[in-house]
């Protein structure tokens, strides 16, 4: 399988607190990988290191075989354009309409004509079921719609890799299931690699091809496998997590 992200010996410390220690992980092109684990295990920290929003204390990250960290800022900037990120709270700019939010990267990084940009915006919003909401401000739409709009913006530049930080948080089960379905559809149709940080068990079982479980006890990866493998794991910690048991 073609590898798209390689993480080698990545560690992250905040002062004396070690959150991640010697993480080694390969992520394959076109897969949906979920990063799971209990609260405070370092899921979001790992995601932020991969995206490049924070720099790891030590370790290396490769994207499509090219060194992403450590490397020159110009190279990092170029590689970062391959990423789309859907943040937990959306991260939509409140002062801009949905259409302007999506137009922002398109105007800055592509040579599309204004007419084509409008067409792309419409398509992206349509692909997340928000066609007709171009002129709405983020404050005028619901939480679920904000998440979908954030996904549309993340997809604006047709990124090779899409990152999702807690996509299901704050959503009702139906909206959450619809978002799962959207993720699966997009993955199938566009072949985009998707990396999802989530707590939502149903979502993990529904969408993931592979799951990485982190845990505080090891300050890193406790297990990697398909959702079914982890659900039937002999390790009590993993079994409890995937079967919603507390002892």
């Amino acid at each position: 399988m073609d590898m798209i992200i390689e993480i080698k010996n990545l560690s992250k410390r905040y002062g004396n607190l070690t959150v991640l220690k010697n993480i080694n992980l390969d992520i394959y092109r076109g897969e949906i990988l979920s990063i799971v684990g209990g609260s405070g295990c370092g899921k979001s920290t790992l995601l932020r290191q991969i995206i490049g929003l924070e720099l790891p204390t030590t370790g290396e990250v490769y994207v499509s075989g090219e060194k992403y960290y450590p490397s020159k800022p110009k190279i990092q900037e170029r590689i970062m354009k391959k990423f789309g990120v859907m943040f937990q709270l959306g991260g939509l700019l409140a002062s801009l309409t949905l259409s302007e939010n999506i137009a922002l990267p398109l105007k800055s990084y592509t040579k599309l004509s204004d007419e084509d940009i409008l067409e792309v915006i419409r398509l992206k919003l349509a692909s997340v079921g928000l066609d007709g909401f171009q002129d709405y401000l983020p404050s005028e739409i619901s939480g679920g719609m904000k998440k979908r709009a954030a996904l549309a913006r993340a997809m604006a530049l047709d990124p090779e890799i899409l990152f999702f930080d807690e996509p299901a948080s704050g959503l009702d089960p139906i909206t959450s299931a619809a978002l799962d379905n959207l993720i699966i559809e997009l993955n199938k149709a566009l072949g985009t690699t998707m990396i999802i940080v989530t707590h939502d068990l149903a979502s993990i079982m529904n969408v993931s091809h592979r799951v990485v479980m982190l845990d505080k006890s090891v300050q890193g990866i406790l297990a990697v496998g398909t959702p079914e493998e982890l659900k039937n794991s002999n390790n009590k910690l993993i079994y409890n997590f995937f079967n919603r048991k507390f002892n």
Partner: peptide, 22 residues
């Protein structure tokens, strides 16, 4: 095949959403 699927996917989105537009 991949490209055909991709174009079909976007085409379907357009068709299913064209009625929603104001």
């Amino acid at each position: 095949n991949d490209l055909a699927n991709y174009l079909n996917y976007l085409e379907n989105i357009e068709v299913s959403n064209s009625q929603k537009r104001e």
